[in-house]
């Protein structure tokens, strides 16, 4: 592990200089939850655990919340609100300004062959533009390759709300080891057939034919998230819910 001690920080706490990774070759990268106050102060702005990674020369604050702030490159699940002349207006999180999605931002779409999405439809998209001064923009196709890479309309199924941190854990490359989330593998192991799409904005889409299976997946995700279950408790939960289904 390349991380050292992880103290609790509250907003405004001073960070002792020995915690800040100092490498002369790479610039120091600040992740979420930290603010640079010129000339040389780094101050946390949320309450959480301060994590430093000396290898990559970066530091950030690990915390959980429920309000998603869009950042470029994030994969999210958006809901179509209405259609404009050549854009869709979509909602990434409730009560925020809509994000725009161009009509042609789908794989091999032309004016005649583009997918027609009705209000209320769900798409798996990537955030292209997000800054504090402009409404966010999203896309369903990679601009460089022209391939969708799994983005696009999500048909059927059900979407469940999870906390932002849980979504991050699910999206981790090694979700079992680093994120300590095993539920998806366990559910598959019990013989449930389903598809999953995880949005960083705290939404998980579960698709499939079996309604009961989808409900079990949703309940598992919600109870693991809200209950803060560890791996052992997750195993027990999956066993109980899968048995109840049969």
């Amino acid at each position: 592990m390349t991380t050292t001690e992880r103290p609790l920080v509250l907003p405004g706490d001073p960070i002792s200089p020995d915690l800040i990774p100092s490498s002369t070759s790479k610039p120091l990268r600040l992740g979420p939850g930290l603010r640079h106050v010129p000339p040389s102060d780094i101050v946390p702005v949320v309450a959480g655990q301060l994590i430093t990674n000396h290898q990559k020369n970066s530091m950030w604050v690990e915390y959980n919340s429920n309000r998603y702030i869009p950042a470029p490159g994030d994969l999210i699940i958006a809901q179509i609100l209405r259609s404009g002349p050549d854009l869709y207006f979509t909602s990434i999180s409730p009560y925020t300004p809509p994000a725009t999605l161009p009509h042609l931002s789908f794989e091999s779409a032309t004016k005649k062959t583009r997918p027609q999405l009705a209000p209320g439809a769900l798409v798996y998209a990537r955030v292209v533009l997000a800054n504090k001064h402009m409404d966010p923009e999203i896309e369903c196709v990679s601009q460089s390759t022209g391939k969708s890479d799994g983005l696009g309309e999500l048909k059927g199924g059900m979407v469940f709300d999870v906390s932002l941190q849980f979504a991050r854990r699910l999206l981790m490359a090694k979700s079992k080891e680093e994120g300590k989330v095993e539920v998806l593998e366990l559910l598959g192991g019990e013989g449930l057939a389903f598809e999953i799409a995880v949005g960083r904005n705290g939404k998980v889409w579960v698709g499939g034919e079996d309604v009961k299976a989808i409900v079990v997946v949703g309940r598992t995700l919600r109870e693991t998230d809200e209950g803060g279950l560890g791996v052992e408790a997750q195993r027990k939960l999956v066993r109980r819910l899968a048995k109840g289904m049969k």
């Binding site: 907003p11 405004g12 603010r35 702005v45 949320v46 309450a47 959980n64 309000r67």
Partner: peptide
């Protein structure tokens, strides 16, 4: 505010 994770200057 701390529970919501709204960025604040100090507590």
């Amino acid at each position: 505010l701390l529970s919501a994770g709204v960025p604040i200057r100090a507590t």
